[in-house]
């Protein structure tokens, strides 16, 4: 998968979160975005998701520029699997209903085909006995697995995960990271914003450091963690890996 950013700027009021970012990266399976809070990781992910548009510049995914108008952006989103940090399920629908909704409402599948496909994905994530439960009856880890199942069930071109484990305790974090690691086998490219450095190191092909409104470093996981070139990244890693 290839991502290309040309002069991408995104401002919120007077705050420039991404400042004329030029960035190009190719990776086989997983790209991890790390960096301090407020550095622009999530903003970049939302731009790639088509949930937000840059104020200037353009973004190309696999050579295709992201569209500008809302209708094309909506189609782009429907073909992209997006998982948020927390609370991204619909609380009034069961786990099964959550996975089925995009299949029936957006992708035009009839109810029985959608049900079969949703059940398949939920089984794959060991959620078979929880399909009838509403999100309120599921643990945080189960909810996040349902969210990943919902994103994956539509057979997206790639998956975007925005801090998928930040709201979870360590045990549930492990449970969700297992699922994400398992996705590697499915061959779907993943772009992941995370604070789990160990996971980024083990699972990511490329790791990008996003801070101060730009991509300051991008390298293979090994090089990134063992031999960081920029002082600001060294500092960040030292601080974050201290405990």
């Amino acid at each position: 998968m290839k991502i290309l950013l040309r002069g991408v700027t995104r401002k919120f009021g007077s705050q420039t979160v991404l400042d004329a970012v030029d960035f190009e990266v190719g990776f086989a399976h997983t790209l991890a975005l790390i960096g301090p809070s407020g550095g622009g990781k999530s903003t970049l992910l939302r731009l790639l998701a088509g949930l937000d548009s840059p104020d200037a510049g353009e973004i190309l995914v696999n050579g295709e520029p992201l569209p500008q108008d809302e209708e094309s952006l909506r189609r782009h989103r429907s073909r992209t699997g997006i998982v948020f940090q927390a609370y991204n399920l619909f609380p009034h629908l069961s786990a099964l209903g959550n996975v089925m909704l995009p299949l029936t409402a957006v992708h035009g599948l009839d109810a029985s085909t959608a049900r079969d496909r949703a059940m398949d994905v939920l089984k794959r994530f060991h959620l078979a006995e929880h399909t009838a439960k509403q999100p309120g009856q599921l643990s945080g880890g189960q909810r996040q697995r349902v969210a990943i199942a919902r994103a994956l069930a539509v057979d997206p071109a790639f998956l975007l995960l925005d801090e998928p484990t930040s709201a979870l305790d360590p045990e549930m974090t492990a449970e969700v990271l297992d699922v994400i690691a398992e996705l590697r086998e499915s061959g779907k490219p993943i772009i992941l914003v995370t604070h789990e450095m160990g996971f980024a190191r083990r699972s990511a092909d490329r790791v990008a450091f996003i801070a101060q409104g730009g991509v300051l470093e991008c390298a293979s996981a090994e090089e990134f963690f063992d031999n960081p070139s920029k002082p600001v990244l060294k500092q960040f890693l030292e601080r974050i890996l201290k405990y």
């Binding site: 909506r74 991204n88 995009p102």
Partner: peptide, 18 residues
């Protein structure tokens, strides 16, 4: 109904009416 619900709905590709 929180902002996150609108975000999730947009993320899966629902239109405003949907």
């Amino acid at each position: 109904v929180g902002r996150s619900q609108w975000d999730s709905a947009r993320a899966i590709g629902l239109t405003t009416t949907q």
